[in-house]
Each structure stands twice: as structure tokens, then as C-alpha cells.
């Protein structure tokens, strides 16, 4: 598993990458009450804000970690946004087919991420 500086976790299987937010991010956000997901089939560029996530405290975004295409979204989340707090590592937001899987090497591993949030 890899991690972004924006507290996303990335789980890669070939060129398909599943994206969620870390436990640290879920805790910082507080109770998540609203999630809006992108359409499957959307072509995205790294940095595009593609998920809206609102907690009782504030609104924030999840941006595309890499260039590629959204191939699947977690349809459970809009109805049950609290899943994000219950188990952030299980509550994935979307899967994308990335243009260049080699870019994954640029992200932090678990140790680097733990150091990042320490």
C-alpha cells in the first residue's frame, strides 16, 4: 500500500489502483456525513478534485492521485458515509485505471507516511 501527502491510501493491482483515506485523515475530518463520488468512466488528471467529502466540521475534497480513468466507485458510501469513520481502510472511494503504474513508486510507503503524520 502507498500513501499520498493528502492522506489518501493507494492499493494497486496491476494498473488498477483503489483509493481511500487514511485513519489519520478520517480522524481529522470527524464524522463523515456526505460523500459525492465521480462518474464511472471519467478521465481524470492528477490533482483534479473528484470526491466531495463533508464531515460535521467541514467540507473537503479528495483529488485524483494520478492520471487515468475512474473505473468503479463505492456505491455504498453516499448512503452510508459513516463507513469512512468505521473502517477507513475498508471504505474505498473509487478504483481507477492509471495511465502509468510506474508513478506509484513516487508515493510514500507505510513507514514514510507514519513519519509524515508524526
Amino acid at each position: 500500500m502507498k500513501f499520498t501527502e493528502d492522506h489518501e491510501w493507494l492499493d494497486a493491482d496491476g494498473d488498477i489502483v483503489t483509493v481511500g483515506i487514511t485513519e489519520y485523515a478520517a480522524k481529522e475530518l470527524g464524522d463523515v456525513v456526505f460523500v459525492e463520488l465521480p462518474e464511472e468512466g471519467t478521465m481524470v488528471t492528477k490533482g483534479d478534485e473528484i470526491v466531495v467529502i463533508e464531515s460535521v466540521k467541514a467540507a473537503s475534497d479528495i483529488s485524483a492521485p494520478m492520471d487515468g480513468e475512474i473505473v468503479e466507485v463505492n456505491a455504498d458510501l453516499p448512503d452510508k458515509p459513516a463507513l469512512v469513520n468505521d473502517d477507513p481502510l475498508a471504505a474505498w472511494f473509487f478504483r481507477m485505471r492509471v495511465d502509468d503504474p510506474a508513478v506509484l513508486d513516487d508515493f510514500m510507503d507505510e513507514d514514510a507516511y507514519q513519519a509524515h503524520i508524526a
Binding site: 470527524g30 464524522d31 456525513v33 460535521v56 466540521k57 469513520n85
Partner: peptide, 12 residues
């Protein structure tokens, strides 16, 4: 205090 460990929703 913004919130305690149970969180805003549980406190509410």
C-alpha cells in the same frame, strides 16, 4: 474543546 474522543455527532 472542539470535541472529545466520541466526536461531535455522538456528543450532539
Amino acid at each position: 474543546p472542539l470535541n472529545y474522543p466520541p466526536g461531535v455527532k455522538a456528543e450532539h
